[in-house]
Lab assay of single mutants.
Amino acid sequence: VTTYKLVINGKTLKGETTTKAVDAETSEKAFKQYANDNGVDGVWTYDDATKTFTVTEMV
């Protein structure tokens, strides 16, 4: 189990959250659901070296 981080650069929501998951794909699903639940829709990137997802909304 690995800890993954999500950085949110939204128009109205900014911040970070973490989750523990067995792999990046599992954490990505959880993070995308979290973003969707909070009305964040944007461009996703992933940095495997830091286990960090970033979602950026276009303004």
Rank of each mutant, 00 (worst) to 15 (best):
Y34H: 04
L6W: 02
Y4V: 04
T54P: 00
K5C: 09
Y34N: 01
M58E: 13
F31Y: 02
D37N: 09
V7D: 02
A35F: 03
I8C: 06
T18K: 06
A30K: 11
A24G: 04
E16A: 09
F53E: 01
D47V: 04
T12F: 14
T17R: 13
K32S: 03
D47H: 05
T3W: 11
T18N: 06
E28L: 15
T12S: 11
T50V: 05
Q33Y: 04
G39Q: 08
F31D: 01
D23C: 05
D47R: 02
D41K: 14
N9C: 15
G15N: 08
Y46N: 00
Q33T: 08
N36V: 13
G39M: 06
G42Q: 00
A21E: 05
F31L: 05
K32V: 06
T54Y: 12
I8A: 01
T2C: 13
Q33C: 06
D23A: 04
T45W: 07
N38R: 14
K29W: 07
F53G: 00
L6Q: 02
E28N: 04
V40G: 01
T26W: 06
G15Q: 11
T3I: 13
A21W: 04
F53C: 00
A24H: 11
K11P: 09
G42I: 02
D37W: 06
K14C: 14
D23P: 01
D48F: 07
D23V: 02
D37G: 05
F31W: 02
F31A: 01
N38V: 15
K14R: 11
T52S: 03
T2E: 12
G15S: 13
V43A: 08
G42T: 02
Y46W: 03
A35V: 08
N38C: 13
K11A: 11
V1C: 15
M58V: 13
D37S: 09
E57F: 06
V7T: 04
S27V: 14
K20M: 14
K11S: 11
V59F: 12
Q33D: 08
D47K: 02
D37H: 07
K14M: 08
T26E: 13
T45S: 12
V55A: 02
G39I: 03
D41R: 12
T50D: 04
V43G: 04
S27P: 04
D41Q: 13
T17D: 03
L6K: 02
V40Y: 06
G15M: 15
V55F: 03
V22G: 09
K29I: 11
N38I: 15
V40H: 04
L6F: 06
D48V: 09
T17M: 15
Y4Q: 04
E57N: 05
V59D: 14
Y34E: 01
T54Q: 05
T26L: 06
D41P: 03
T3C: 13
E25C: 13
S27W: 04
N36E: 13
K29N: 07
T17A: 10
V43Q: 09
T18G: 04
M58P: 10
V1I: 12
A49V: 11
F53D: 00
G10Y: 06
E28S: 07
T18C: 14
G10F: 11
S27G: 12
K32G: 02
N38W: 14
D23M: 03
T52F: 01
N36Y: 15
G10N: 05
L6Y: 02
V55H: 00
F31G: 00
K5Y: 15
G39C: 08
K11Y: 10
T12L: 11
K20G: 07
I8G: 00
T12Y: 14
K5I: 12
I8K: 00
T52L: 03
V55Y: 02
L6N: 02
A24D: 05
V1W: 14
V1M: 15
K11R: 13
T17S: 08
T45R: 06
T54S: 05
E25Y: 11
G10H: 08
D48Y: 07
T54G: 02
F53I: 02
T19Y: 15
T52K: 03
T26K: 06
L13S: 07
A21P: 02
I8L: 08
D48C: 05
K11H: 12
Y4T: 04
T26N: 07
Y46L: 01
T45D: 09
G42S: 01
M58R: 11
D47M: 03
D47T: 04
A35R: 01
A30P: 00
G10W: 06
Q33F: 05
K14T: 10
T3P: 04
T54H: 06
D23T: 05
D37C: 11
F31T: 01
V1R: 10
T18Y: 15
T2W: 11
V22N: 09
A49W: 08
M58N: 10
T52M: 04
A49N: 10
Y46P: 00
T18F: 14
F31P: 00
T56Y: 07
W44N: 00
K29T: 07
V55E: 01
K5D: 03
K5Q: 05
F53S: 01
T12N: 12
Y46I: 00
K32P: 00
K14S: 10
K20A: 11
T52G: 01
E25S: 11
V59G: 14
D23I: 02
N9F: 12
N36R: 15
F31M: 03
S27D: 01
G15I: 15
T2L: 10
T52I: 05
T26C: 06
K29P: 01
K20R: 13
V55N: 02
T52N: 01
A21G: 07
K29A: 11
T18H: 10
T2A: 10
E28V: 06
A49S: 11
D37I: 10
V59E: 14
A49I: 11
V55C: 05
T26G: 06
T56I: 07
K20C: 14
W44Y: 01
T2H: 14
K32A: 05
S27N: 01
T26I: 08
K5S: 06
S27F: 03
K5E: 03
A21L: 03
F53K: 00
T18V: 08
V59C: 13
K5F: 14
K32T: 04
A35T: 07
L6M: 04
K11T: 12
A21Q: 07
V7C: 08
W44E: 00
K51L: 08
N36L: 15
M58T: 12
T3V: 13
N36C: 14
L6R: 00
N9P: 02
T54D: 02
T45V: 08
Y4S: 04
V59H: 12
T54F: 10
N9Q: 11
Y46T: 00
Y46R: 00
T17H: 14
G10P: 02
A35P: 01
T50P: 00
S27Q: 04
T56E: 06
D23Y: 03
T17P: 02
A35S: 04
Y4P: 04
D47G: 00
V22P: 13
V59Q: 12
Y46H: 00
Q33I: 09
D48P: 14
T50W: 03
K29S: 07
E57Q: 08
L13F: 15
K14E: 05
L6T: 02
V59L: 13
A24L: 11
V22F: 12
K32Y: 05
T12H: 14
T56K: 05
V40F: 10
Y46Q: 00
A49L: 12
V55P: 00
G42Y: 03
A49D: 11
D47P: 00
T56Q: 06
I8E: 02
T56V: 07
K14D: 05
T52P: 00
T50H: 05
M58A: 11
D23S: 09
E16V: 14
G42A: 01
K14A: 07
K5A: 04
D41W: 12
T2D: 10
L13T: 09
N9K: 10
I8V: 08
T50E: 05
A49G: 08
Y46G: 01
V43M: 09
A35I: 08
T52C: 03
T56N: 08
N36G: 09
W44A: 01
K14I: 09
T52V: 05
V7G: 00
A49Y: 08
K51R: 10
G15P: 04
T54K: 04
G42V: 02
F31H: 00
N38L: 15
V7F: 06
V40L: 09
T50Y: 04
I8D: 01
T56W: 08
T12C: 15
I8R: 00
T3G: 04
N38G: 04
K51C: 04
A49H: 09
D48R: 06
V7M: 06
G15K: 12
A35G: 02
K51S: 05
